[in-house]
Design a protein around this nucleic acid. Structure first.
Lengths: 250, 250
DNA sequence: CGCGATTTTATGTATAGACATATAGAGACG
DNA sequence: CGTCTCTATATGTCTATACATAAAATCGCG
């Protein structure tokens, strides 16, 4: 009765399950450098006796570490701490409307230009499509609390995304519309810096020659190009944050 | 008999193991939109009979999808396709020396300045450390095929990384040294754009006012600041690539 | 009808055992 | 000494079963 009837096991406050304990334990040793890159992790049968559990259990812990790229498993040889040859950071690029809303600022959207046309050579090159038919070209501006936040220049392949023909991009930003209506499988972001030309400066309300951060995003579904977009942000006010989390959660 | 002795199962050329087939199958339906966000994935017992396998097998497939954040599993309710609120892209930021070598270009390194000092207020703010003792301040330049590639301005907390006192940063770039000698648990990259001032322009051999891509990286071990670094790249020549991979590998 | 207690159910963790498979390392051979 | 073959072995997958746990669904009672 009352709170917490006495269970058979009677364990401490919160037991994070055995396989998670094992995973966290190994993770800790890797992250603190106790087991440096290249170090061979104890064999499964050693971990079995060390933790007093079955092989499936230690295997589950090791599999998750492998999936998270912290270790590498090789048959017959064992499991090894991976050598981090690069920093792998997760860059979360929000839909701009969602991003501005998340900041607690009021989102503004303005369609500057929207036209449908048969793809010319430039369009095809930009999309990376071989023989494209029709495309939609969109230019628009996002603002936060009335201040220009980013300008967007987008191309949508109408053959790959026929539903886009019916969308009202005056009412909904193309990024949001696409995110919610079009499934995609691959995306690539190329990040660079430019200085504002006259047109960009006017649209973003900054000085000509001011720095701008550029994101060129290409999106595909099963290797077929869907859309190409260039986002231009005032360079010093906007920052992209990429966070690396060595460990896994919970 | 010769090739491929008749096994009991007799399967096609390459069998990607059952649980992977299941995972890829579900993944495909999610990625193509057949199962949109919020859709409930068939219960484990349904998948068991659909694929004719045990529960552990379908569970393994679903667990991997959950770890990859493609689905969400809720006890008693079932497993659901996750609603992607943002684009999550993996940004691989290589060690600069490794990056240049990988491009097949010759790496050049030049230590501009290296000094040890007691942290002043600016240093402490930059590191985000409360009461810092000594720090090492480093300025250096990386080049590829003799052309300036990036300039680096770094601060290392000597209390957190005492080994750094013995490192020879004239011989080895601090980024490489740290990556190979100092374990860390968290890193944050802030990416922005600026225009080159006189000093940066001279160091990178570009015009004053030319755009530069800036990466500010902070690294911690268990919430303790280790180092803060600012990398400045010529903005139009250098691009950061962040790739999203909807699916998991093989 | 509302609400708390009970039941049901889908997932979560764990087990012991089985067979598959890649491969490091040993041994055979030239 | 190199190379080729074989074998031992660690991981990879899968099964059938068991119990734990969280929460949805239902029941029962006032």
């Amino acid at each position: 009765m009352s709170l917490a009837t006495d269970r058979g096991k009677l364990q401490s406050a919160d037991k994070p399950t055995l396989y998670k304990q094992i995973r966290i334990d190994i993770e800790r040793r890797i992250l603190t450098g106790e087991w440096p890159p290249g170090h061979r992790i104890p064999f499964e049968h050693e971990l079995m006796s060390r933790y007093g559990c079955s092989r499936m259990t230690v295997s589950k812990a090791l599999s998750e570490l492998a999936q998270a790229d912290l270790i590498e498993r090789r048959r017959k040889a064992g499991s090894f701490v991976r050598r981090p040859t690069f920093l792998s950071a997760v860059l979360k690029i929000a839909d701009i409307r969602a991003e501005i809303n998340a900041l607690g600022r009021s989102y503004g959207y303005e369609l500057i230009q929207c036209s449908r046309r048969t793809a010319n050579a430039t369009d095809r090159a930009r999309l990376g499509a071989g023989k494209t038919g029709k495309v939609i070209a969109i230019a628009c501006r996002h603002s936060a609390d009335g201040v220009p936040f980013a300008i967007e220049d987008r191309l949508i392949d109408l053959d790959a995304v026929p539903e886009a023909a019916a969308a009202d991009f005056a009412a909904e930003p193309p990024g949001s519309w696409l995110l919610h209506h079009v499934p995609w499988t691959e995306a690539e972001h190329s990040i660079s810096a430019i200085v504002a030309d006259e047109q960009a400066a006017a649209a973003l309300d900054i000085a000509i020659g001011a720095p701008c951060l550029v994101i060129d995003r290409h999106t595909w579904r099963s290797a077929r190009p869907l859309t190409a977009v260039r986002l231009l942000y005032p360079g010093e006010s906007h920052k992209l944050i990429a966070r690396f989390k060595g460990g896994l959660e919970g």
